[in-house]
Design a binder for these strands. Structure first.
Lengths: 216, 216
DNA sequence: GTCTATAGAGTGATAGAC
DNA sequence: GTCTATCACTCTATAGAC
């Protein structure tokens, strides 16, 4: 919209500073949780003065968003890995990459939830990030639904975009429950939810029926 | 476990103070969001000194949990209202009570998410509350699934408890998406997700099929 | 463009008075 | 059991120096 708001060029020093701060912040979040993160400690770990850091990141929230963006890379890797399983034609859909979630993803899930809670406010730094993140993942999910519909393992009557959003919701919601009760079998719950939302049970039944009819 | 930790008796004054503080806190949350809540303002509205309030609620988080508990009454009313619709035998499951959500529930949803993000820590005041809340709602959901299975509008092969947890996840997850993008049709999305998770499409197909068979 | 000094507001822990 | 006084700490807005 406004060409002056889009930075024409980022100086090397700024980029360096920014990534150092983001890295330090993510380290702290993974160690002690986002709540224990103080601007003072981030600055100390990033070897920068606290007030200097505040030039690059006006508020603590901006720092948290930067940390979240960093953590997101792994998160995205998990999701895409899952899609490759689907593309392989595995209808039972066990997402093996998700089994690795139990490591230190609690911290990032917490951070994700905390930021989501603030994202209503369009002024909040997390708003733009989360909206973009959401749309991107939903786009990928939508493609997956279409592929499955083409393969006959998802109900073709369903609206791919709507299903994608429901999958995204199930994914966030189940992570949330797992946060409150880590004994929840997240992988199994996600698989079952995804299959149900894609209309897989119905398609499977229809397929079995046609096979049965062909037999007799 | 330890009988000394469970208060034998709560004095009337304490209860009065507590509810006044909770009410004041919820008012502020609904007006400006949980982020803008300061202990000073809560104390002022509750007509109590800030430090006196800190005796009853050791931290700001304790106050937020009390506010959440208050808000929960409405939330629960919505959910039970929905169940009555189901019990009425309406298989299409439009939860009319949920259509009223768009009012000031954004604020409580935000608060709910923010507290959920902290709930991993068993020491956090939100932990016990959220765990109990979750279990209670899931219990109700489970009953609903069983009822629907008995009526033949839910797949009897599904584990009611697991389905209930998936419904709960869908419910939280969709609220979260709606928070980021309020243009989402929450009611429709919830209906469709719930139906899919209960295996309704499959049951409906089977029923239509038997009707068709009986015809010919 | 990058950074510093300073100052004000919010939180919460402690010791001790009614 | 209820409440107060006080203090240390964290966050961030502002003005201005390199």
């Amino acid at each position: 919209m406004d060409s002056t708001t889009a930075p024409r060029k980022r100086y090397a020093k700024t980029l360096e500073r920014r990534s150092a701060v983001a890295r330090a912040a993510l380290d702290i979040v993974l160690e002690k949780g986002h709540r224990a993160l103080t601007t003072a400690e981030v600055a100390a770990r990033a070897s920068i003065s606290e007030t200097a850091m505040l030039y690059h990141f006006p508020t603590r929230d901006h720092i948290l968003v930067a940390a979240m963006e960093l953590a997101d890379e792994d998160y995205r890797a998990i999701l895409t890995a899952e899609f490759h399983v689907i593309d392989g034609g595995n209808a039972d859909w066990p997402p093996p990459a998700m089994a690795h979630l139990t490591l230190d993803d609690q911290a990032t899930t917490r951070l994700f939830l905390a930021l989501s809670a603030e994202a209503v406010n369009p002024e909040h730094p997390a708003h733009a990030y989360l909206k973009a993140h959401h749309e991107q993942v939903i786009l990928e999910f939508t493609e997956g639904v279409k592929r499955r519909q083409a393969k006959g393992i998802a109900d073709p009557k369903l609206d791919p975009d709507r299903v994608a959003r429901q999958m995204m919701a199930a994914w966030s919601g189940l992570r949330m429950q797992w946060l409150i009760d880590p004994s929840l079998d997240l992988t199994a719950a996600v698989s079952q939810s995804f299959l149900a939302l894609n209309g897989y049970p119905l398609m499977k039944f229809k397929q079995e029926m046609t096979e049965f009819m062909a037999q007799s």
